[in-house]
């Protein structure tokens, strides 16, 4: 806990960046690669080390506050929203990201494990943090990422029988499909019920 950056001092205009120092040291200890920008520490770990890293971060580093867990869909092919800046350099993948922090200071880090899109499976951290169950269910809903070991990986947000994973970049936003933003109101008919609820690259 001594490595916590002291945030009471102004951070800018200083040569040393406490977040960078803390993040690099943390990554070294836990065996990962640290990227620090805008005071946000990202630690990339291998997915085989995922649970172990989280456990060690909790037990050894004092990052015992489970803040959240989510997924990111890195995709060249973007149905809605903006594309990535340099699509050529992008590797198509999912990222599972979990934020742990401390309840004693500003210390906190985002642990990230990359998953290939065709094999989006990762071990569940519900054994480490009970609170991760809902977050993993949400990520399962939204991205279709499998969490092995989660006791109850049923849909949490989506209605039963819903096909598709809404937060995938390839998932079209239906409202956006039929009505360009900002749309004129009440001009078109309502969209017909889709035969197949929009799944992957249907549109």
């Amino acid at each position: 806990m001594n490595d916590q950056p002291d945030a009471t001092e102004p951070l800018e205009e200083e040569v040393r960046d406490p977040y960078l120092e803390y993040g690099t040291a943390l990554a070294e200890r836990l065996g990962g690669r640290a990227v620090v920008e805008h005071d946000t520490i990202r630690i990339y770990v291998d997915r085989s080390n995922w649970v172990e890293t989280i456990r060690r971060a909790r037990d050894e580093e004092g990052l015992d506050f489970f803040s959240w867990l989510t997924g990111i869909d890195w995709s060249k092919d973007v149905e809605v929203g903006d594309t990535v800046a340099e699509p050529d350099e992008l590797e198509e993948r999912f990222e599972v990201m979990c934020r742990l922090s401390s309840v004693e200071g500003v210390a906190g880090a985002h642990f990230i494990a990359a998953l290939p899109k065709d094999d989006a499976v990762i071990d569940s951290i519900t054994g480490v943090f009970g609170g991760a169950e809902w977050h993993e269910r949400e990520a399962h809903d939204m991205f279709g990422i499998e969490f092995t070991g989660n006791p109850n990986l049923s849909p949490i947000y989506l209605p039963e029988g819903f096909i598709g994973h809404p937060l995938l970049k390839s998932y079209p936003l239906l409202a956006r499909e039929v009505k360009p933003w900002p749309g004129t109101v009440d001009v078109e008919d309502m969209p017909p019920e889709p035969e197949e609820p929009a799944g992957g690259g249907e549109a």
Binding site: F65, F66, W68, V103, F129
Partner: peptide
């Protein structure tokens, strides 16, 4: 400790 584990804040 339970509160921390579940991310209560």
């Amino acid at each position: 400790n339970k509160a921390i584990e579940y991310g209560l804040s």
